[in-house]
Amino acid sequence: MTTEASGTSPLNHPEPAARTLRYSAFTHDPAGGNPAGVVLDASRLDEAAMLALAAEVGYSETAFVTGADEQARRFRVRYFSPLAEVAFCGHATVALAVALAERLGPGEIVLDTPAGEIPVATRVDDEGAVLATLTSVPTRSRPASDTELDATLAALGWSRGDLDPELPPHVAFGGNDHLVLAAASRTRLAKLDYDFEGLAEVMRRYGWTTVHLVWRESPELFHARDPFPVGGVVEDPATGAAAAAFGGYLRAVGLVTSPARISVRQGEDMGRPGDLLIDVDPHGTRTRVTGGAVPIAEAGGPRRS
């Protein structure tokens, strides 16, 4: 893969190399959704520099384009939280895809990520907003063990009675592993006051990126929250990677029996509402996740605890 170095490239002109753009994903309002950093030319940055820049930005994730073939619309990408690199990040992917579409025009792009190849389709809707639809790597989902569940509930301050018995706890994968727990009520989901270090230790032990807490309002609408202490933030406002994994979960537990579009509402309890759309085919292995993104004029959003 080549890296564009010419000043005529739309990816580095008029923006200087390593400039951090700020977008909020899964929203059309900069005050909503999930903020992400986007660096369109990180070809000269090493891992330590990318981690330091992500920590400085302070968002849950920053996406770094480390190589680009603009003619083929193919880009090599790495993702960093304030504390560590992650293999895949959905909201930063959407933010990056929108930033690329604004500069190169809408259409298909391909991202080469540590988790694998991620195709992304970008388009402009009837209101002029850019939307991005990513296709996840193959998903998988398995029941959580009693040991995993008990340790997580203890850190959350939840009990088994707080869970929806119709939606079993699972560890789901869509580029990263996420523990999926379904709350029995919207009230339980809204009251999130957990042991930050305790949950981080549990998540590091089992290799989870977030704990994906959901409440089912209807078969087509779920509300979600994603504690992300291993990334250095209390909560992720809109989590595309978890949404991709959740699509695989819905398929695995038999809640999707025909092709379906599911809405996930996230961030309301943080004051940053966002909307994620997931398309799930019961006969497929991947999840399609759709959302918009808009530039943020200045730094803001979730910071490290």
Rank of each mutant, 00 (worst) to 15 (best):
D126P: 00
Y59W: 02
W208G: 01
P227K: 00
A245C: 06
P35G: 05
A49M: 08
E220N: 06
A101Q: 14
L255P: 08
V234R: 08
E4C: 12
S136K: 09
Y249N: 06
I278N: 02
T139D: 08
T2L: 15
R73Y: 14
E15V: 14
W215H: 15
T135D: 11
T210S: 02
Q266Y: 00
A31C: 11
D226K: 08
T285L: 14
V234Y: 07
K191N: 12
T66L: 08
A48G: 08
R205C: 06
F228L: 09
G157H: 13
P302D: 05
R186Y: 11
G90Q: 07
V110C: 08
A31K: 14
A172H: 05
H170C: 06
A115S: 07
W158L: 15
D112F: 06
D193C: 08
Q71I: 12
A25I: 00
L163Q: 01
A18V: 01
F80W: 10
L53D: 05
R272L: 00
T135Y: 09
Y23K: 04
S6Y: 09
G161N: 11
D226T: 10
S141G: 11
P10T: 00
L149Y: 01
D162V: 12
R76Q: 13
L21M: 01
R261K: 14
T239P: 02
A42K: 10
G247K: 13
P119L: 13
S141Y: 14
M50R: 15
G58A: 03
D112Y: 08
P106S: 10
A183H: 01
H223Q: 03
E217G: 04
V294M: 14
A17F: 02
R44Y: 09
A244F: 02
S60W: 05
R204W: 00
G90Y: 00
H28I: 07
G292M: 03
A183L: 04
I109K: 10
R205V: 07
A68C: 05
A18P: 01
E117N: 11
T210F: 02
P82Q: 01
G300H: 14
L131W: 04
G174K: 12
P119Q: 10
A129F: 10
S218C: 07
Y194V: 01
D46W: 09
T285E: 15
T133D: 04
D69V: 03
D281G: 05
D226H: 12
P106R: 03
A25E: 00
A55R: 10
S60E: 00
A5L: 12
P30Q: 11
M203V: 05
R160M: 07
R286C: 13
L111E: 07
D164H: 00
A97K: 12
T93G: 10
L192M: 11
N12D: 10
Q266H: 06
S24C: 02
E166R: 15
Q71Y: 08
Y59T: 13
G240C: 01
V233P: 03
T2P: 14
L199C: 04
P82L: 03
H212R: 07
A172P: 07
L83M: 12
V65D: 06
T257N: 14
M50E: 12
I296K: 06
V124R: 15
K191V: 15
S24W: 00
V264L: 15
A48C: 03
A242I: 01
A183P: 04
L45E: 11
P106V: 15
G174E: 11
D46M: 09
